[in-house]
Amino acid sequence: MKGKLLIFASALAFVFASCDKVPQAEIDAAFAAVDSSKAVQADLYLPAEFGAVKDSLNSAMAKVEAQKAKWFKKFEEPKNQLIAVKAAADQLITNTAARKEALKAEITATLAEVKTLVEENKALVAKAPKGKEGKAAIEAINNEMGVIEASVTEAEGMFNGGELLATIDKVKAAKEKATAIKTELEEVIAKKAGKK
């Protein structure tokens, strides 16, 4: 009789033991990967992708909690989702590094372009007509060039400080301004040449 009760108890224990275990290792790994991606500023450089990974992690964790609330727990789905989250977060780390490198290259190239434009503009200023309008324009252009050069210096400081996104906006604006000045000077010089 005792033996049979033991069999029954074992059967019941099996029923409960058959419940899945919380995928703690996958949870820890997914959280660690997301934290690492944030540490490399994926949230700044790839915000949409980082948001998607974070949403997926939240969804997986909600599913884990939902399963915990059940008699018969099945963690397979959230477990797979957590594995996917970890893989995506790892990929995000690689992609963030690539994005930063691409930004650095773009900034370096644009800064060089701006510096070249400033030098070209200085050479054009010397050729610009010096009538009343030309005189006024030259004074204003020299001042604007001063602002561009100051913004280049500021951008270089930001670049060295690792503020790549703010730097790229600044150097793009500087390039746009320097290009506009160049066009203005070229037009004025061409107009003068046409008058001769």
Binding site: N143, G146, V147, S151, D169, A173, A174, K177
Partner: peptide, 23 residues
């Protein structure tokens, strides 16, 4: 503004403003 003599700070701020406008 290009024509008249302005204090350096006023002209600089004007050009900074135009630069920020571009940004």
């Amino acid at each position: 503004i290009k024509l008249i003599p302005l204090p350096k700070s006023v002209r600089e701020n004007y050009n900074k403003g135009k630069f920020l406008l571009s940004e």
